[in-house]
Design a protein around this nucleic acid. Structure first.
Lengths: 334, 334
DNA sequence: GTGAAAGCGCTAACAG
DNA sequence: CTGTTAGCGCTTTCAC
């Protein structure tokens, strides 16, 4: 159905090799022939088969990306950055949304492997042995982005989640808060579950504050989850004066809940998010948040991959980027 | 580097044809050989090359998806739906974010063509002749989703944008509003630019209301654009009592602006969105919005594609899904 | 049931 | 500069 290189060769009266040369830059082809070939390509509406080409070059120019949740403000932002940087390097990204489902991740990982993508970016939070084993056996550069590679020899690009949550908690404490609720992610999530929770805990303890079990609740980083968790927090007595969430989306959910119940932010409660996604500027009051350098993480992931694709620079293990608090309107000094 | 089918054949002492049979369901292979082959596959950590396979079967099981903006709440929701439905049909999606850039779209369209994806879903808003021509020449099923295929013979899945905006405007008029501002998209965007604007205009005129140029402003559907446009609207004298936006994101931007300037929604201004994305439930007050059946649009796109991929059912031109108003908290009766 | 062999559409030596 | 040819890793007749 589609024209093949052979058809172009025949039509322009040259060999397939010449056509191939024209296709790949046109070095060592006379201008005259080049023109003839280009004309034939045009007339036949010919478009080279990426598949056949990949089969011989063993290169697909595709980077597979595993995202846990496409609707999350954090991941959609980081994805934009990845796409942009990949594109600038003449790579294309293939995105697969695993919806926090390990079986689905396994399936997509296998697909990427079969497609022979040149590299992969993984942003999963949960994992298991099957997945670790599969990734370990991969003969291609892999980068974990915004999550830690536990027990596998894979480079990860992260922030120091422990220190970031420590700093965030400290920030609220310095504002005069003593009763600080924490809305966290699944503790089995090493990076944004366990580490962030530990940071919160340590900061509280270091400052002589007690951990109130009622104030500590765990969800799944999504808006709805933040809302539900906050309902629980509001039933506490006494109520906390500040809420620290493990994601901006959760903080936004908590914010919505607080407003729905007739309270004011930051007058009645200070709310602090985590991620620094676009969400922080969308809600009112604007959300004070612990920022991850989202754009930079995407850019760094591609940069690293490009370096690995060119030569084997295998000495890096972790790249830890800087976090920082961006103050907006949702937190108040007591 | 990776094991090939030949290696598996050698290791298990059979021909490549037998291995291939095992790989593809194992019909007509004795249980004994099957077991041997499976064992060899396991031991060699063999994974068939999707590329080589595609080259001979002429099928990639990939659906290419063109998205104008990954960070938009509307598109990220529809994408989830597309992914989910494709996955259920054993297809994978390859997502390309064109960032409203025609050159980029052309580039990605060409990539999809070269990769020989089995089908494409296009959600661009803007277009030009080069793109139209390319799409027209495509030898594969293509579906336009949430945008109209102007002058090309491609099926599109849409709502009646004209009628929807007419209905939305009428809703505000019925609430007693007379001075209704409209924050629209680029008029060159047929579907959500021109059609929506026309619907607004007609509803106003039909109800004996005058069009106030000051109240009508155009942006790009994004939050920031809604904010900026709203700043302009607030400088009008007299001010409108209601604002209809052409996207939820814009409405949310307008909402933020209104609140920032010290006004109340819906007491001072009623604000209505368009799309019915997740954004409507995130902000406070919750956004009354004209809902598109987002999930259904994604599901329908895949359903149509699957039908086309199996047989040639070429008689459909447009599928128009139902829109509906979902009332929340951002609009008030005068 | 099983194997041999012919391609799928391209690139990349190697000759000339 | 240009053409010939041998694969890339698989599926799929067609024999046996």
């Amino acid at each position: 159905m589609n024209a093949r290189i052979k058809d172009v060769a025949k039509k322009s009266g040259v060999s397939v090799a010449t056509v191939s040369r024209v296709l790949n830059g046109g070095e060592n082809v006379s201008d005259k022939l080049k023109k003839t070939v280009l004309k034939a390509i045009e007339e036949l509406n010919y478009s080279p088969s990426h598949i056949a080409r990949s089969l011989v070059t063993k290169k697909t120019n595709i980077i597979g990306v595993i995202v846990p949740d496409l609707t999350s403000s954090f991941f959609s932002t980081i994805l934009s950055s990845i796409e942009e940087n990949a594109s600038a390097n003449n790579y294309n990204i293939m995105v697969c949304n695993i919806a926090e489902d390990l079986d689905k991740e396994l399936k997509y990982l296998n697909l990427f492997k079969q497609i022979r993508v040149d590299a992969m970016i993984v942003m999963h939070e949960k994992t298991d042995d099957r997945i670790k084993q599969l990734i370990s056996g991969l003969q291609m550069p892999v980068v974990f982005c915004s999550c830690r590679a536990e027990g596998i020899n894979v480079l990860s690009i992260i922030i120091n989640d422990y220190a970031a949550t420590y700093d965030a908690t400290k920030y609220l404490i310095d504002l005069g808060h003593r009763n600080i609720a924490y809305l966290g992610g699944d503790l089995r999530d090493i990076t944004s579950g366990e580490n962030r929770y530990e940071g919160y805990k340590k900061a509280m303890l270091d400052n002589g504050l007690l951990l109130n079990e009622q104030y500590i609740r765990f969800g799944d980083y999504k808006v709805q989850s933040g809302y539900t968790l906050m309902e629980g927090v509001l039933r506490c007595n006494p109520k906390p004066t500040a809420i620290l969430a493990a994601s901006d989306d959760m903080a936004v959910g908590a914010l919505g809940c607080i407003i729905d119940k007739g309270y004011k932010v930051p007058d009645d409660f200070s709310v602090m998010g985590f991620d620094g996604s676009s969400m922080t500027e969308i809600v009112r009051p604007r959300l004070t948040s612990m920022h991850q350098p989202i754009k930079e993480m995407g850019a760094m992931a591609i940069k690293i991959l490009m370096e690995h694709l060119e030569e084997n620079s295998d000495f890096l293990d972790q790249i830890v980027l800087k976090h920082k608090i961006v103050e907006r309107e949702s937190c108040k000094r007591l």
